[in-house]
Nucleic acid binder design. Structure first.
Lengths: 153, 153
DNA sequence: CCAATATTGACATTTATGTTGTCATTATGA
DNA sequence: TCATAATGACAACATAAATGTCAATATTGG
């Protein structure tokens, strides 16, 4: 007898795998941070600055989709570490632009480079095509779910 | 000029989509619980009982991969709601087996059925094949990441 | 059968990751 | 210029979960 696994069941399963996936990913990131004096949230700030360039606290908050008040705390910590400098913001005098120092850039790029090496291992026996497909699916599904969640709220 | 997006970058992106995906999914689940007097964690307990049959608190904890002490709290709440009964456990006298009441079963199956309807919407323009592929990729990646995280710790 | 060991429920404390609310201080823009 | 918005700073709260501990059983190897 065939057991037909319906599309909806698979989608449900896919979506609920996101939690263990995230937890495993965070555990790996955390492991990669040992010895750097960085916390996961400081790493997140550095990553945003490296990926999208220098920016203000509210901008980072928008990208991370978490409240600016909390991002403020994260950024203050990161600033205190000396990996980031505050530069005057021509667009808003009270809100400095955060930028990586050389040390900060070197550090975050090294961390991300190590994470990429981990990605090589993790994706070793999965084809590029399948990863592309998976990414497309997940992006589409996340987008739809967000819309739905927004509508119901 | 072509911009070649490397496999590793896509995998990295896929993995980090798990956070927003999870958040959107949880928001949808929460929205579906309005009017039921259920919390998200009570729903999780009911789902485990519906999916894997009657079981004890430590068993549920193992499946959810969270500490038994917290699952105990979740289960006590659920028990208090009357959606679950405690049955004597022949294998361990201090640890009763939790089982859904008829009302509990009806309720959780209705909730999940509604979630499945949401899945239909969300997956409307994604093919079954692509969803299968995505699920396989995500399962494989999560598994590998867990192994990695375990090894480093 | 009994002693050593493990399991479980119950409870208290602590931590991590945020959210929400508020205030004073600027900035901005009509 | 004046109403409104944005920002940083701070406090309070919420939630999910980990951690530690205890007493009461249960289980199991000798």
């Amino acid at each position: 007898m065939y057991v037909v696994i319906m599309k909806e069941d698979q989608l449900h399963q896919l979506i609920w795998m996101s939690r263990p996936l995230m937890q495993a990913a965070e555990a790996c990131v955390e492991a990669g941070l040992v010895g750097t004096n960085l916390t996961v949230r400081m790493r997140a700030v550095l990553e945003m600055l490296d990926k999208y360039g220098e920016q203000t606290v509210p901008e980072i908050a928008a990208r991370l989709e978490i409240k600016r008040q909390y991002v403020q705390v994260m950024c203050n910590e990161t600033f205190a570490s000396g990996l980031v400098v505050q530069r005057p913001n021509p667009r808003h005098k009270r809100s400095p632009i955060l930028a990586l120092t050389d040390h900060g850039r070197t550090l975050i790029e090294e961390i991300i480079s190590n994470e990429m090496k981990l990605m090589e291992k993790v994706g070793a026996n999965v084809s590029s095509e399948d990863i592309s497909t998976a990414l497309e699916v997940v992006l589409a599904v996340a987008d739809r779910l967000k819309t739905q969640a927004g509508e119901r709220a």
